[in-house]
Write a protein that binds this DNA or RNA. Sequence first.
DNA 1: GATACGGACTTTACCGGTTAAGAAAACGTT
DNA 2: AACGTTTTCTTAACCGGTAAAGTCCGTATC
Lengths: 344, 344
Amino acid sequence: MTATPTPRVTIKDVAARAGVSKGAVSLAFNHKPGLSEATRDRIFRAARELGWAPNLTARTLAGSRVDVVGLAICRPARLLGLEPFYMEFISGVESVLTEHSCSLLLRLVRTVEEETGLQESWWRGRQIGGSILVDFRADDPRVAMAERLGMPVVAVGHPSLTGGLTSVWTDDTTAVTEAVRYLAALGHRRIARVGGAAALGHTSIRTAAFDEAAGAVGLAGAWQVATDFSGDAGARATRSLLTASAPDRPTAIVYDNDIMAVAGLSVAAEMGLSVPGDVSLLAWDDSQLCRLTHPTLSAMSHDVHGFGAEVARTLFGVIMGGGAGAHPVPTPVLTPRGSTAPPR
Amino acid sequence: MTATPTPRVTIKDVAARAGVSKGAVSLAFNHKPGLSEATRDRIFRAARELGWAPNLTARTLAGSRVDVVGLAICRPARLLGLEPFYMEFISGVESVLTEHSCSLLLRLVRTVEEETGLQESWWRGRQIGGSILVDFRADDPRVAMAERLGMPVVAVGHPSLTGGLTSVWTDDTTAVTEAVRYLAALGHRRIARVGGAAALGHTSIRTAAFDEAAGAVGLAGAWQVATDFSGDAGARATRSLLTASAPDRPTAIVYDNDIMAVAGLSVAAEMGLSVPGDVSLLAWDDSQLCRLTHPTLSAMSHDVHGFGAEVARTLFGVIMGGGAGAHPVPTPVLTPRGSTAPPR
DNA sequence: GATACGGACTTTACCGGTTAAGAAAACGTT
DNA sequence: AACGTTTTCTTAACCGGTAAAGTCCGTATC
């Protein structure tokens, strides 16, 4: 990219107009002591008249402050578009960043390796003051990267996945257990779970929790399928689960996100099965989408916006040199709606 | 945000290790002539050994290049989370930015005023090399802003809204006309449209086009409702349209996005009306969601990812000092699925 | 009345690169 | 051998801020 011919106003112009030195202008704009009210006013007036605002690039270079945080998301673009989760998460993050006049540098990447490279170059290039790491997997290379670089990060994921990094996490184990117990309490004895991408750490955690819970409540049948989070995959998985003959067919299905649950609902309809009569469906994340279907979808709800906000707050804590440790956010709670009922 | 104690490697360290001056390292890394192959190799080797990469902040300050583009989206966070459109759009933009090792600076804002302020400070602060402006409204202040600042931007919207700015736009008028003609051809005589936010320019354009088309094909009834794009609003609008008694009730409804169409589908089901038997529904944008419902949703489909990519390409053109004018992208095409049929 | 002190600024040296101008060595020419 | 040309590299001045150290001045202290 080449320059544009805009006549840039610099701190020098403001200083000249206010009849002071650059340093004085800098003091004024950083609200530091050492200036009289009168001078301060003159400086601000001059700046306003010239339409000047500090050049953040120069400020970053000179000082030690960087008011941008990074976020790289590693999922196929096709799927991201549909995941209400991320936009809500981002909007939560933004809500806190904005209070600190901080911006979000976003990038979609294809692989974890690409992400580590990107994060490293962002950090080395002082593009960011810290970063949010999401979608952890087992032995995630980003743990070592962040530690090696001494980069302030907050890891979104269970502490068992995020090593020594400061983390923000939801208790998926408890949530999965609650979901299974709820369905079992309704009388379901054969429950399936349509999970997310097998490579992701939280998927393994939920998978293990589901097995555990299924055993604990003594289910007669428990199935689990891994998908890529897409609606298509959710539909395929549901179809194959529901085509089984009656005794082998689950009477309830839990999904790892709401898109797949919507797809499941449609598959049931297409197969002539009634929801919740023939099969109960339980979604996860609970975006607005769950209230737009017919029947409405019961879901494990999550304050995704608040989650994002908490992540951002934690990141600021880390950047300021504190706030280490694992920060739990409230466990998703069951929100029963029209898609779950006792089996017929 | 305060600094972290990472020992940063700078160009000076690389120069020292390679036994040359800073300038030589700079020349090597910018692939400029004036260095022997041998020296170049030594420099690159030294850089590799030290794990050095040029500091983008310093590079930006010194040179005239900024490899970040801005995007501010002005819709309530709650709605954004659900709009598949934006994430897909962003992923399209990113796909092109990545090729140019360029990043996206994203911010959610509440008002256009807030956006103009933000864009201006981004530009003045040299945070961005250019910007993508979306969601234009009548007499949009951003047109004047971009011109005043001489900031390279590409406006996403119809040329009638974007003034003299370089724009990328879809022909909504033709698309709306096609939608109405299609429904009329199926035999529908009473068609309603559940539109988006009235303040947005493209909504007015579609509203006008709908009226026009309704007149041209001689409909017996044509209704239009403005919403905020949310599923809830779509549901409310649909409910009120469908509660009318038979002669006054539309037999087909066109929605301005797919979320509202999904909501409409559910309202029809809840009211005991069959789709497409009693009422046909036609969605807009056509994300994956339209294929996940039952019946599947007919839609005016759009290559949103490609749209985003085209916008990014156009922005690069503008930044390079060319590419002005209005760039049309293909008109949405009708994709008939299960939710549209002749009226009973 | 000399000394100390604190407030209000200014000076100056960076931050980590780029780039124009300058200098030294290598080369070809007559 | 003397002289212009390149080629290769160095120097030094920016870019637009920040921040530590320095200057100047009015006032309180003994």
